[in-house]
Design a binder for these strands. Structure first.
Length: 861
RNA sequence: GCGGACGUGGUGGAAUGGUAGACACACCAGACUUAAAAUCUGUUGGGCGUAUGCCCGUGGGGGUUCGAGUCCCCCCGUCCGCACCA
């Protein structure tokens, strides 16, 4: 039904006004980033997506946050770079090719097209002219050039490393392709097998990457802590046990320990199944060989190895304790010792290490305490493992002092051992070199050639990019590059003889470790261009998921250093991300069919719209089958719990979707998706639009103009503070409050116009289309996207009076309103006169009176 | 197993160590309407009470403090990462 008012008032129609304003921005090239030395630059970047097929609501949340920052910074006078691209290499494309017979390239580019089409209606302030995908030869060719430069600088090398090997499919498996220790396609028990592979020497930078963390002031502490722990600097003792009657050429076992203070509690030596000594013994002794083979069963992940039941094999060999040559310790091969870390050998001190304790209990080895609690006794039945910073009483320690901290005792032990020639203090890092070889097709080819005479040589730069061949098939497992009839054949870049290309491709982490630098000059015929990199780097604000807290960010930090050393980035960009924000994930329940599985015995998942509540149970609408609800899980295409934002945009518009994903939840926290909020957001935006559209119907004169103007200035402060601190939900709460104030206000037209224009500006980073529309309705000049951010007038913020609660013994009993600047003594007097206080004191004196001006009064009785 | 976080009404959440539940959703009631929708107004943590009000309450247990959702210790639960998923 139409009211007379409606006839001269357009209603809120996102479907009309959103394309209209997007067109206006495009025609004005508003988001095109150009170098402009007259303005401070601001580079805001959201972690680029993998082109999985469709965008999901998590993407919308991520990009909207970045867009709020980009638009806000732009309106505060910055020259903003806000690009977008695709992390487009990787296994899902190959899996899709295996499943449906297409080509990874076709699949990937089709997905990119779809996702761009889905992203553009969101009205993001992105410079789309800079877009690229990492699978563009234009991009990965430059990556190959950098690989060659890094090879020249000694930052890349080859060594053996273990992979998951599927003995039936005869292929290397990724960790995610191993399910319960079995290959996902063949079902075969997976084995660990060694291959020669390429590595980046990230370990050269362990100390740099660690110590520089302290200067990352605008990174979340949790990410910094995780990176520090990952790099894992430790001070310890390296020494050797002399081996009694060992195999030829092996008379000692080198050991590294971070707890040399417990050396006198040693009761065995454990070595990895891949330790040279274990390998020698295995040659002679089939039983040992079988045990080592057993240890190699299972996947390569740390988690799997750590969780596996602890197994040991007594080699029968003994070593001598370094301090007492009569003291002999047995040597075990154990499945929980990694050859990659330290020396691949440890000594076990069961009294002070839980894992050693369990091992000693299982194999009946002695448990000798080295220290004990200062008071009381250590609990029996488990290892006594206090913090290294705690003081304990040493009973079999090294130094004179009986009571000291573990840290002091470790240092004393190292000093003692060095003085006695038993070993040396050594600083080690947990961080391992970055294995980048992948035995897969859909990745950046490693640009090296294997020549019979010249060995492994880099490809000539003029031959780059080494492009992937298109004529490949995925009907059988393994790397199609390996079995391609001609692609491998090439001329040796050094001698010109017939040679073979490397068929390994690069880890996709390599692709994402420098894309941020490439965005500064995305079409350059070198990896970067100095002027552009100098101007735009660093990324001022990086935004992405917490799941990338360690690997992606650490690899990118390494790459920035390597690019600096190969001349592709300036010194100032060695630490590439000035500020980091980690947004939470959008989660959604997973609906798993509880009654049946598919033909392969795998779980069946249902889409949210396929299920319903029936008599308090969740069931499949169509069949009535019972559903197991797995709450709050990360959205995953394979689990069918992905929420598609396209429908929401179609129904309510992009501004509603943007407003909704920003409201309610703090951005760093995970949010459980519920559809109910979208409608409420749409209603609110409709209301805001109506307020602006109805302005001309307001009387010119009114009441409370000043109150409304004050509210506007307060809103400017609150909303700006929220945006500056990534408190978008807080900003939105304040915007709700401000909108309510405008709606209720009886102020005159001019005051309302000011308030509404301020509201439009404050909303413009979040709901840019609606803001433009309001701006135009309210008679704003030009585009709101070009309007400077509003500034609050300090004079309008001062409040005359302040209300303070009065507590009695910490419980609120009354409140008083006093002038803002009233001295403490006067507040005290007033508080003591309050009825409840007089009653409670009953003529007596308070024990204590606490007055925090402007905050609280607490009377202690 | 190791490392990191998180836990507050029916729901999402707010709260520089200072009035717990801002703001919103949902629910309920009312106004408008022939009616419905939309819109507007009001109520809503639990318990007791006619009421001024009182008691309880931020996963559980302890502690520090005049005062703890916030700081410390222990426990429980959930989530993220663990080097070939991206």
């Amino acid at each position: 039904m139409t009211t007379p008012k409606d006839t001269h008032m357009s209603s809120y129609s996102p479907a009309d006004l959103e394309p209209k304003w997007q067109q206006a921005w495009n025609e004005g090239d508003v988001f095109l980033a150009k170098r402009d030395e007259s303005k401070p630059k601001y580079y805001v970047l959201e972690m680029f997506p993998y082109p999985s097929g469709r965008i999901h609501i998590g993407h919308v949340r991520n990009y909207t946050m970045g867009d709020v920052v980009a638009r806000y910074k732009s309106s505060t006078g910055h020259n903003v770079l806000h690009p977008m691209g695709f992390d487009a290499f990787g296994m899902p494309a190959e899996n899709a090719a295996m499943a449906s017979g297409g080509h990874p390239k076709t699949w990937t580019y089709a997905n990119i097209d779809t996702m761009v089409d889905q992203m553009k209606p969101l009205g993001l302030s992105i410079d789309w002219t800079r877009m690229f995908a990492t699978c563009d030869p234009e991009y990965y060719g430059q990556q190959q050039a950098m690989f060659i430069d890094m090879l020249g600088k000694g930052l890349v090398y080859r060594k053996n490393a273990v992979v998951n090997w599927d003995p039936i499919d005869m292929t290397v498996l990724a960790n995610e392709q191993v399910e319960d220790g079995r290959g996902w396609r063949s079902g075969a028990l997976v084995e660990r097998r060694e291959l020669t592979q390429w590595f980046f020497k990230i370990s050269d930078y362990s100390d740099d990457l660690l110590s520089s963390i302290d200067h990352l002031d605008n990174w979340p502490d949790k990410v910094k802590t995780m990176q520090k722990n990952w790099i894992g600097k430790s001070r310890g003792l390296q020494f050797s046990f002399s081996l009694i009657d060992g195999p030829a050429n092996q008379d000692r076992v080198e050991v590294y320990t971070t707890r040399p203070d417990t050396l006198n509690g040693a009761s065995f030596v454990g070595i990895s199944a891949d330790h040279p000594l274990a390998k020698s013994l295995a040659e002679e002794n089939p039983e040992i060989a079988a045990f080592c083979e057993e240890c190699r069963k299972g996947g390569t992940t740390a988690e799997e190895i750590e969780k596996a039941p602890k197994l040991g094999f007594d080699t029968g060999l003994k070593v001598r304790h370094p301090f007492d040559t009569a003291w002999e310790l047995p040597v075990y091969i154990a499945n929980f010792i990694l050859m990659d870390y330290g020396t691949g050998a440890v000594f076990g001190c069961p009294a002070h290490d839980q894992r050693d304790f369990e091992f000693a209990t299982k194999y009946d080895l002695p448990i000798n305490a080295v220290f004990e609690p200062i008071e009381g006794e250590a609990q029996s039945g488990e290892a006594y493992v206090p913090m290294k910073t705690d003081k304990v009483r040493y009973t079999r320690g090294f130094s004179g002092e009986d009571i000291q901290t573990g840290d002091d005792a470790v240092n004393a032990a190292i000093d003692f051992c060095e003085a006695n020639g038993v070993g040396t203090g050594v600083t080690k890092y947990r961080l391992r070199d970055w294995g980048l070889s992948r035995q897969r097709y859909w990745g950046c080819p490693i640009p090296v050639v294997h020549c019979e005479t010249c060995g492994v040589v880099p490809e000539k730069k003029e031959n780059l990019p080494i492009e992937l061949p298109d004529d490949v098939s995925f009907d059988i497992p393994g790397n199609p590059l390996d079995r391609h009839p001609t692609w491998r054949n090439c001329a040796c870049p050094t001698c010109g003889a017939d040679a073979l290309r490397e068929t390994d491709t690069m880890d996709t982490f390599v692709d994402s470790s420098w894309y941020f630098a490439r965005f500064t000059a995305p079409r350059a015929t070198t990896p970067t261009i100095a002027e552009d990199a100098d101007y735009w780097m660093n990324v001022d604000q990086y935004i992405g998921g917490i799941e990338h807290a360690i690997l992606h960010l650490l690899y990118s930090r390494f790459f920035a250093r390597a690019m600096n050393e190969t001349g592709h980035l300036p010194d100032s960009a060695r630490e590439p991300f000035n500020a980091l924000f980690t947004q939470g994930m959008v989660t959604h329940a997973i609906y798993q069919n509880a009654e049946r599985t598919d033909d392969h015995g795998r779980a069946i998942y249902h889409y949210p719209e396929e299920v319903e509540e029936r008599d308090g149970e969740t069931v499949v609408k169509a069949t009535g089958e019972k559903i197991k609800v797995i709450p709050s899980a990360k959205m995953s295409k394979s689990k069918n719990n992905v929420v598609d934002p396209v429908e929401i945009i179609k129904q309510y518009g992009a501004d509603t979707a943007r407003w909704f994903v920003l409201s309610d939840s703090p951005p760093e926290r995970d949010v459980e998706w519920t559809a109910s909020g979208a409608e409420a957001s749409a209603k609110h935006l409709t209301r805001v639009h109506r307020l602006a559209a109805e302005l001309d119907a307001q009387p010119e004169q009114g009441q409370g103009d000043e109150d409304l103007i004050r509210a506007a200035h307060k809103a400017i402060v609150d909303v700006t503070l929220g945006i500056d601190s990534f408190g978008f939900n807080a900003s939105i709460a304040k915007l709700y409050g401000f909108t309510n104030a405008i709606a209720k206000s009886k102020a005159g037209r001019d005051a309302k116009r000011f308030a509404l224009k301020t509201l439009a500006q404050l909303m413009s980073p979040m709901t840019p289309h609606l803001a433009e529309e309001m701006w135009s309705l309210l008679g704003g000049e030009g585009l709101i996207v070009h309007a400077p951010w509003p500034e609050a007038d300090e004079a309008m913020l001062v409040e005359a009076a302040v209300t303070m609660p009065i507590q009695i013994n910490g419980k609120r009993r009354a409140e008083i309103t006093v002038p803002k600047d009233m001295p403490k003594e006067d507040i005290e007097k007033l508080a003591l006169k309050a009825d409840v206080v007089v009653k409670a004191l009953d003529g007596g004196q308070p024990k204590k009176l606490i007055v925090v001006p402007g905050r609280i009064v607490n009377v202690v009785i």
